[in-house]
Nucleic acid binder design. Structure first.
Lengths: 211, 211
DNA sequence: TGTATATTTGACCCGTTGGTTAAATTTAAA
DNA sequence: TTTAAATTTAACCAACGGGTCAAATATACA
C-alpha cells in the first residue's frame, strides 16, 4: 500500500464519508453520484461497484445518521441519574453534538418527510415505547409532582428536544433575521447560552405548571 | 371566454398554484417543470412563456410562501393587546395556519438552508429589528418583571415559535416514533392540545424564571 | 511463479430534464 | 373585417445524471 491519495483509509470508508457529506449538504435529489465519486477521489463506476445504486448508498448513509442523532439521546435517558440531571445532560451533549453536525437536523427532517420509506429502521434505533416507559416509570414521583400525566409525555418530550434541534433546523432563518447571530461563532455561542436558558425555562415551567 | 379547463382562473394563477404545490411537496431539486405544467393543465412551453426559468418561478413562489408564513406572526405581535394575549393568539393562529399548511415549515427551512440566496426578500417581509423593538418597548414592564433582558429576546422568540413550527417540521419523525400520533387527525388534535400546553408552559416558565 | 479473484478505470448508454423555436391559434383593437 | 399582438402548442435540443461494460490492474494464494 503506497498511496498518497488524499484522505486515506479503505475505499468503502472514503465513499461513505463523501456520500454522507454530499447527501447532508444537497439532500437526496440534489446530490450527484459524480460529486460523491470526486470527493472520494475515485471513479464513478467504482462507486457503483461498492454500492449498486444511489438509493442503496443513500439508505446506508441515512441509517447511520439517524443512529448518530438518536443514540446519544436515548442512552442518556436510560442512565440512572435524577430527571433534572438527565435534561441538563441531554441539552449539553446534544447541543455540542449538533454544533459539530449542524446540518443534520434539516437533512434528516427533510428526507424523512420527502421519503418516509427510508425510515424503516427508525423503530429499531429508537424504540420510543420503551424509552417513554423508562422515563415515566423511573421518575414517576417527580413527574407526577409536576402534574405530568403519562398522556402529557408526547408534549413534554417534543418540547425538550425542540430546544436543541429547532434552532439548528431554523439556523438560516435565524441568521437572516437576527443580526446578533450572523456568523457561526455567534450562533454557536448563542446555542451554548441556550443550554442554561433551556434547562431553566423547562424546570421553571414544570415547577409552576397549571395542572 | 368559454373554457371548461379544470380549475379555472387565469393561466398565471393556475401555474402559480401548481408550482406552489409541487415545490412544497418535492423541494426545488425534486420538482419537475413537466409536473407543474401538467398540474396546471398546460403545455410546458407555456410554463416557460410565463416564467422564463425554473429558478425564476421558484423564487416567485418562495417569496409568497415566506410572506404567508410570517405575515400573520408579525401582525399579531404588532397589535395593542397584553403580552400574554399575544402569545396565546400567536399559538392559536399559527397552529391553525400550519394545520392547513403542514408541509410549509420543512419546505421553507430546507430551501433556506440549501440555497440561502432565495431569501433576499426576508428582511423586507419580517423586519426583525422593528419587531423586537416593538415587543420589547411595548411590554418592557412585564418582560422586566420576568427577568427578560433585551439580550434574552432571541432566546425567548426562538423558543416561542419553536412550539408551533417544530412539531410540523418533525412531523414524520414524531409520527414514526409515537404510536399515539399515527394519522393526520390525531396529529392535528395533538397540535390543538399543544396550544394550551405551550402557553401554560411558557408562562409558568416566565413567572418562575431564574434571573 | 502462475492463476484466480478482487479492485479500478475510461468509455459508453439512454432516459430525463430544463429550455427553445417556429408555427398555430386566440384576443383585441382599428 | 383586418391586422397586430398576446397566448398556446408540438416538436425538438443539448446537457445532465444514474447506471453499465469490457478491459486493465492490483492482490492473494496455491
Amino acid at each position: 500500500m503506497s498511496k498518497s491519495d488524499p484522505a486515506d483509509g479503505n475505499t468503502q470508508e472514503r465513499i461513505f464519508e463523501a456520500a454522507s457529506a454530499v447527501f447532508e449538504e444537497k439532500g437526496y435529489t440534489g446530490a450527484r453520484m459524480q460529486e460523491i465519486a470526486d470527493r472520494a477521489g475515485i471513479n464513478k463506476a467504482l462507486l457503483h461497484y461498492y454500492f449498486r445504486t444511489k438509493e442503496q448508498l443513500f439508505k446506508a448513509v441515512f441509517q447511520v445518521m439517524l443512529k448518530k442523532m438518536f443514540q446519544k439521546i436515548t442512552s442518556i435517558f436510560a442512565e440512572e441519574i435524577p430527571f433534572k440531571e438527565k435534561i441538563k445532560r441531554f441539552l449539553d451533549d446534544h447541543i455540542e453534538f449538533l454544533i459539530k453536525n449542524p446540518k443534520l437536523p434539516i437533512f434528516l427532517l427533510n428526507e424523512l418527510s420527502q421519503n418516509p420509506s427510508v425510515s424503516e429502521g427508525l423503530k429499531e434505533i429508537v424504540n420510543y415505547d420503551e424509552l417513554r416507559e423508562l422515563i415515566y416509570s423511573k421518575h414517576a414521583k417527580e413527574l407526577k409532582g409536576y402534574g405530568i400525566k403519562k398522556s402529557d409525555m408526547p408534549q413534554l418530550m417534543v418540547t425538550v428536544v425542540s430546544f436543541s434541534i429547532f434552532p439548528f433546523a431554523a439556523r438560516d432563518m435565524i441568521r437572516l433575521m437576527m443580526p446578533e447571530i450572523e456568523d457561526n461563532k455567534k450562533f454557536n455561542a448563542y446555542m451554548r447560552e441556550r443550554k442554561d436558558f433551556a434547562s431553566d425555562f423547562i424546570f421553571s415551567a414544570l415547577k409552576h405548571r397549571k395542572k
